[in-house]
Simulated scan of single mutants.
Amino acid sequence: MECSAPAPAPSPSPPSSGNDNGSEEQVMSEIHLGCPPRFSGSYISTFTVSLPQDVARSPHDRGWGNDASESLILGLDEDGDLLLPRRTRNVEPSCDRYCVRIQHNITSSIPNVGLQVWRAELVLSDFILHKALCSSEFDGVIALELGAGTGLVGLLLARMAKTVFLTDHGNDILDNCAKNVELNIGSLNCQATINVRQLDWFNDWPPKARIGESPSTQRYSWTSREIDNAENASFLVAADVIYSDDLTDAFFSTLERLMSRGSAKVLYMALEKRYNFSLSDLDVVANGYSHFRSYIKDEDEIKSLKSDTMTNFVGKWMDFSQIPQYVREYERGDDVEIWQIKYSGPVSKNWS
């Protein structure tokens, strides 16, 4: 990761977006630990996306492939290593490697952790890049990122999607996210219309729509048409939005209202399990992760349940251990998980 202008360095801690209430304690993502110390403010880092040489393909179809219906079938060899099909033609070097420029902070207060880059954000980027390379799943879709922070994941989706909503809460985070759109919209060959929009999980969905032209003070507000488009999104993505129980509750409340309206949606969610010593348990536990899991039932668990058991969210743990690392400037570690989550509760158009 190349740093264009660095900042100071207190202690590492948890991330993502939520309300503006909270302590001014400064936290720092481990992604920034290699940057020079004793600087302040935001800076621009360059993240390199390198496509596997054996599967790099033409940038003219889906950004990756030769046929819109083409998808790669990947297998494992006897040692469990990923088998990648060999490239059958010459490809322009530029499509094998490209860069994403992200403006972000090294440190922030807890309510503003969306100003930083977090490990789960990069893991989810790898996951999205791999699915885009191996299928047409994201082609021409409407997608929405919850707690977008720097907007990195949504920007990568914008290479394939038709419309992308980058949502978060607070003008500082939204201004920074909009800056990252500006930095990359040309160089990333984005196909999508990208909208940076305010979304406070502690308020009900849908957000209040603006009427007529929006003044500058409402530049991140929604139009009625945009709300309709968001409700008809096919895919939602979220990275590192779980770190406090009240925020998790608000997240799933918003998720329920959003996923129960309009078209069927799939959420791809990456989160890092953070462990702390608990006096009540006298053990090292990941309470935030446990609270997250209380909202979902995994597919295997559902199969063993009685038919009358109700659950609003069904999750599937995604094994990404065989997915190549496309974003070069980080170490994945062992504590990040990716979940595919679907809504299985009642569908309603008239929330009170």
Rank of each mutant, 00 (worst) to 15 (best):
N203P: 00
G186L: 09
A264I: 09
S109D: 08
S321P: 01
I211A: 10
L279M: 11
P37Y: 07
E30H: 11
T309A: 15
N21C: 08
A68W: 11
S11R: 12
I142K: 05
E226N: 01
N176M: 10
F202V: 00
N180W: 00
T48G: 01
V285H: 03
W64E: 13
G345F: 01
P12T: 03
R57W: 08
E331S: 15
L282I: 13
R86V: 08
S280M: 09
R62Y: 06
N350C: 10
I73D: 13
W339N: 07
L157C: 02
S17F: 04
V117W: 00
R159G: 08
S109G: 13
F138P: 05
P346Q: 14
K306F: 04
S16N: 14
L124A: 05
D319S: 06
K316V: 04
W351V: 05
S304I: 06
K273S: 06
I44D: 03
P37A: 15
S234H: 14
G262K: 08
N171M: 09
E337S: 12
T48M: 00
S344K: 12
D281R: 14
E24Y: 06
D79P: 00
V49E: 04
S13R: 10
T223C: 02
E256V: 07
V327C: 07
W317E: 12
G41P: 05
E25F: 09
I323V: 15
F202Y: 13
A68N: 08
S45Q: 13
G170K: 06
C134M: 01
L74V: 14
Y220C: 03
G34I: 04
T150R: 04
